[in-house]
Computed example of a mutant assay.
Amino acid sequence: MTNAGPPPASAFMTNLPLRRDPASIRLRVEAMERLLEGAFIVPGINRRVGLDVLLGFVPVIGDTVAAALGAYIVWEARNLGMNKLQLARMGSRVGFDFAIGLVPFIGDAADFFYRSNTRNLKTIKRHLDRHHPAGVVIDR
Rank of each mutant, 00 (worst) to 15 (best):
residue 89 R to I: 13
residue 69 L to A: 06
residue 60 V to R: 09
residue 117 N to Y: 13
residue 39 A to F: 13
residue 98 F to Y: 10
residue 42 V to R: 07
residue 33 E to P: 02
residue 30 E to F: 08
residue 51 L to A: 09
residue 71 A to P: 01
residue 104 P to F: 12
residue 99 A to P: 04
residue 61 I to V: 15
residue 139 D to A: 12
residue 126 R to S: 03
residue 114 Y to F: 15
residue 12 F to K: 07
residue 41 I to C: 05
residue 21 D to E: 15
residue 87 L to T: 09
residue 72 Y to F: 14
residue 16 L to I: 13
residue 125 K to M: 10
residue 20 R to C: 06
residue 46 N to D: 01
residue 134 A to I: 09
residue 136 V to W: 11
residue 3 N to I: 06
residue 139 D to H: 04
residue 119 R to A: 00
residue 114 Y to T: 07
residue 138 I to Q: 08
residue 30 E to N: 08
residue 64 T to S: 10
residue 18 L to G: 12
residue 33 E to C: 06
residue 10 S to F: 09
residue 46 N to F: 10
residue 21 D to C: 05
residue 4 A to K: 08
residue 20 R to H: 08
residue 136 V to F: 14
residue 45 I to S: 15
residue 4 A to V: 05
residue 13 M to Q: 15
residue 15 N to W: 15
residue 22 P to Y: 13
residue 9 A to R: 02
residue 94 V to H: 00
residue 58 V to G: 00
residue 96 F to G: 12
residue 102 L to A: 02
residue 110 A to K: 04
residue 112 F to L: 13
residue 110 A to I: 11
residue 59 P to E: 03
residue 14 T to G: 04
residue 34 R to T: 00
residue 129 D to F: 13
residue 36 L to I: 00
residue 90 M to Q: 03
residue 109 A to Y: 12
residue 98 F to Q: 07
residue 64 T to R: 02
residue 91 G to R: 07
residue 133 P to N: 12
residue 75 W to P: 01
residue 17 P to Q: 07
residue 67 A to F: 15
residue 94 V to F: 03
residue 61 I to Y: 12
residue 30 E to P: 05
residue 19 R to P: 06
residue 55 L to M: 07
residue 49 V to Q: 00
residue 1 M to W: 13
residue 23 A to S: 06
residue 84 K to N: 01
residue 29 V to R: 01
residue 3 N to M: 05
residue 52 D to W: 03
residue 66 A to V: 02
residue 114 Y to C: 02
residue 44 G to Q: 12
residue 39 A to Y: 12
residue 66 A to E: 01
residue 124 I to F: 09
residue 45 I to K: 14
residue 137 V to Q: 07
residue 136 V to K: 07
residue 59 P to G: 12
residue 103 V to D: 07
residue 40 F to M: 02
residue 73 I to C: 02
residue 138 I to L: 10
residue 61 I to N: 05
residue 62 G to K: 02
residue 96 F to T: 04
residue 13 M to P: 01
residue 65 V to A: 08
residue 87 L to F: 10
residue 89 R to N: 10
residue 20 R to Y: 13
residue 40 F to H: 01
residue 97 D to C: 09
residue 28 R to I: 06
residue 95 G to T: 14
residue 99 A to F: 15
residue 50 G to T: 02
residue 72 Y to T: 05
